[in-house]
C-alpha cells in the first residue's frame, strides 16, 4: 500500500465542554474516495475546518504529503495541494464563472503580485479556464457572474475551481447539497473519474451517492470515528446501524 496522502492522527477539538472532535484518526490513500458520514452535529464541519486550516486542533497532528500541516494557515495548505470545495457555495460573486476559475489558476501558479499585465487578456489563462469549465459542463455559462448562476451551476463551478488548483487531494464538503437527482447522477460519474487524478475526502449527506462512490467510509458520531471500512462492512456494522443508518431506515 502506498503512503497515505492525508493522515489525521488522534485529533482533538473542544468548544467548552463539547468535544466536537474526540480522538479522530483517519487516512486518505491515493486513488480512493474516502467518504465521511455522520448525523447532524457529529462534528463533520469542525473536522473539515481542521483539515482545511480554519480551525486549529487542541491536540493531534495532520500530515499531508509528508508535511506536518497541523499549524499551517489555510493559504499555506492550499499551496501544498489541498483543494477544497465548500458546503455552501463560496465563490467570488461579481466574477464570471471564467474569472473564478482564472483566479484559481493564477493562485496555482503563485503569481498574484504582478501589477502590469492585464489578466483578462492573458490568452493562456483564459483558454485553460475555458477547458476546465468545459469539463464540468459550464463552458456555455463562462461569462455569467457566479452570483447569477443557478444553485446547481454554482456547485459545478465549485468543482471547476477545485480542479483548476490541480490539488494532490480534494476535500469536498457536501458537493451534492441541494442538487436535483439528475445533477447528482452526473456528479457521481464525474467524481468516480476524478479520483484517478487525486484522492477525494468526501463529506456528503446523499447516502445513495456515498454508497455508489466511496471506496471506504468513516462514520463520525459525537466527535468519534465509530467505524471505518468498505461500503458493505459499514452497512453491516451494528453500531453504525444503531447510531446512524437506523435513523434513516
Amino acid at each position: 500500500m502506498a503512503e497515505p496522502v492525508l493522515t489525521l492522527t488522534d485529533l482533538h477539538k473542544s468548544f467548552g465542554a463539547l468535544k466536537a472532535t474526540d480522538g479522530v484518526s483517519l487516512t486518505l490513500n491515493p486513488g480512493e474516495i474516502h467518504a465521511l458520514i455522520g448525523p447532524n452535529g457529529a462534528g463533520k464541519s469542525t473536522l473539515i475546518g481542521q483539515i482545511s486550516g480554519r480551525v486549529l486542533p487542541d491536540a493531534g497532528t495532520i500530515t499531508f504529503r509528508g508535511h506536518d500541516i497541523t499549524r499551517l494557515d489555510v493559504a499555506q495548505r492550499a499551496r501544498l495541494g489541498l483543494g477544497r470545495s465548500f458546503q455552501i457555495s463560496s465563490l467570488i460573486p461579481d466574477y464570471s464563472a471564467r474569472r473564478n476559475v482564472m483566479l484559481a489558476l493564477q493562485a496555482r501558479q503563485g503569481h498574484s503580485f504582478r501589477f502590469l499585465m492585464p489578466v483578462m487578456r492573458d490568452r493562456g489563462l483564459r483558454d485553460r479556464a475555458d477547458a476546465i469549465l468545459d469539463r464540468v459542463g459550464l463552458r456555455g455559462r463562462a461569462s455569467v457572474p457566479s452570483a447569477e448562476l443557478s444553485h446547481g451551476e454554482r456547485r459545478l463551478l465549485e468543482i471547476a475551481v477545485a480542479l483548476a488548483l490541480e490539488p494532490a487531494c480534494f476535500l469536498l464538503d457536501e458537493p451534492m447539497a441541494g442538487m436535483g437527482a439528475e445533477g447528482v447522477g452526473a456528479l457521481v460519474t464525474f467524481l468516480r473519474d476524478l479520483k484517478t487524478e487525486a484522492p477525494i475526502l468526501l463529506v456528503e449527506h446523499d447516502m445513495d451517492a456515498v454508497f455508489a462512490l466511496a471506496d471506504r467510509l468513516s462514520v463520525l458520531v459525537y466527535g468519534q470515528v465509530i467505524a471505518t471500512g468498505t461500503v458493505d462492512e459499514i452497512r453491516n456494522d451494528p453500531r453504525v446501524r444503531e447510531a446512524y443508518l437506523g435513523e434513516e431506515a
Partner: peptide, 26 residues
C-alpha cells in the same frame, strides 16, 4: 493597471470573499 492585473484580480476577489481566496492558496 493595478485593477486589470493579477494583483488587482486577487485584491478585488479578497474584497468579495477572503475565505475563498485563502482556500485557493493566496
Amino acid at each position: 493597471l493595478i485593477r486589470a492585473s493579477r494583483f488587482g484580480a486577487a485584491l478585488m476577489a479578497i474584497r468579495q470573499n477572503p475565505d475563498r481566496v485563502a482556500s485557493l492558496g493566496i
